[in-house]
Design a protein around this nucleic acid. Structure first.
Lengths: 246, 246
DNA sequence: CAAGGATAGTATCCTAGAGATACTAACTGG
DNA sequence: CCAGTTAGTATCTCTAGGATACTATCCTTG
């Protein structure tokens, strides 16, 4: 635990305070800045979490934020870890790996529903914050009894995580379209109609058949959840095949 | 094929020219703008594809671009479709669905390698451009003989596509870290060391065990390809389970 | 063959964000 | 009480996206 080797950004992520009692006492700290930014993103989307707006929310000038976060990109990393939060205690229990991994995926989906902007955030690398690590750890723990090697476990955890993120992104994409008078049904109908006009059955036989089918007309609000389950079970089936092989 | 109902942005995506011979003839067209933007993104990343820079590359003022693309966001959509290009002819052949879907995924991975910035582009909805539709169509065609219903086929195609994108994103994230003198091995070693210092085996037993293992030290340049195959086969196993059920 | 309408491209403005620099303010320990 | 240390401020620059009002160039029609 030699913390001297840890770079500054990681120290901030893990909230390792230098504990210096010198100089002017701070009104702000990393947590306050990040919380304010997360609150803004929750309310008005990721684009609203700008340095000027965060500063205004904290009643402070923009530049003072740089005392605590280093850069906008670093703020984004901090925001992700903070918004994720720790994995819920309900994942602690024991049980068959499939149930546990399913629960893990659903818990992550719940987080993404609470903070929709998390989905659009660029992934800059492997998890490195305390909460990111905690989720990662929980995912690995679900696979503990499977006999998979480390590489496979990592692959499985990232695959499931990717799936959850992709599904959330898709759900959000479908849910967008309201806002300027068009409700979701109208948006989808207009998409379907335009596609029907553009997709030539000669060039794109299968796609045209899809758009010709009733698939894009009967999508109610519950479909998202149903589709999510379907894909998740598919992924879990794939994991099961790997587990049986090991 | 009533093209009157198609909104302007879709008309531009599909290159449906209004064919008006009136007025001053254009030096530019949608294709030229998009190609220039793609070239910039290929060379210097997505952030380099700004309206001023595209305009400079075309020796034209920034504002003239708005005659052809409508907005920056629309340009991004156009760029995606253009960069994807049509799916390769090699996917046309027939064969068992698993081989075909695998080939489809690999072809898509190749596109993402050629245009790395595609990975980071926000997904704004279902595919709507000609190339996006063509890829989608090819994916559906690979599943034609599986007996899956439309909803399942769509889910499978999107799942595989998501997987490819996620894997590419991960590969890029790992490949970043060079640039300021640190080569990849050094970056990974430094990441591993910092994590080893921060991840408390008491709080995060499985993650700590992972970082303690040799997993993060033995990753050569070929590992990406290997991991990609592993995850892809996993996904295909899941699809196989769904196909057998149908 | 000249208007005049239609379209392409330009010049100039504004807003907003990220960040650099140089400053002032507040505290603490010698 | 003062010198060093740290927190927050004021002001400036650069870059980007976009709005508006203009000029340039061409085709068509009278």
């Amino acid at each position: 635990m030699d913390e001297a080797e840890v770079p500054v950004e990681l120290a901030r992520l893990w909230r390792i305070a230098p504990e210096s009692r010198l100089g002017r006492p701070a009104r702000l700290d990393v947590g306050a800045v990040v919380d304010a930014a997360v609150a803004l993103a929750d309310r008005d989307g990721l684009a609203a979490a700008t340095l000027p707006k965060v500063a205004e929310a904290l009643e402070v000038t923009k530049m003072s934020l740089y005392r605590h976060v280093g850069s906008k990109d670093e703020l984004l990393v901090l925001m992700r870890d903070a918004a994720q939060g720790p994995p819920p205690a309900s994942l602690e229990g024991t049980g068959p790996w499939r149930e546990r991994l399913r629960g893990w995926a659903e818990a992550q989906a719940a987080v993404l529903e609470r903070h929709p902007w998390l989905v659009r955030m660029p992934v800059t690398g492997p998890p490195s914050g305390p909460n990111g690590i905690a989720w990662f750890d929980a995912g690995l723990r679900a696979l503990r009894e499977t006999g998979l090697d480390w590489g496979a476990k990592v692959g499985v955890v990232m695959l499931v995580s990717q799936y959850v993120g992709g599904a959330a992104e898709l759900a959000q994409g479908l849910a967008a379209g309201r806002g300027t008078g068009l409700d979701q049904a109208a948006a989808e109908q207009s998409y379907g109609r335009a596609m029907a006009a553009l997709v030539d059955p000669g060039r794109f036989p299968d796609a045209a058949a899809l758009f010709g089918s009733a698939t894009f007309e009967a999508t109610g609000p519950d479909t998202g959840g149903h589709d999510f389950r379907f894909g998740l079970e598919l992924v879990l089936d794939g994991v099961a095949a790997a587990v049986e092989r090991a």
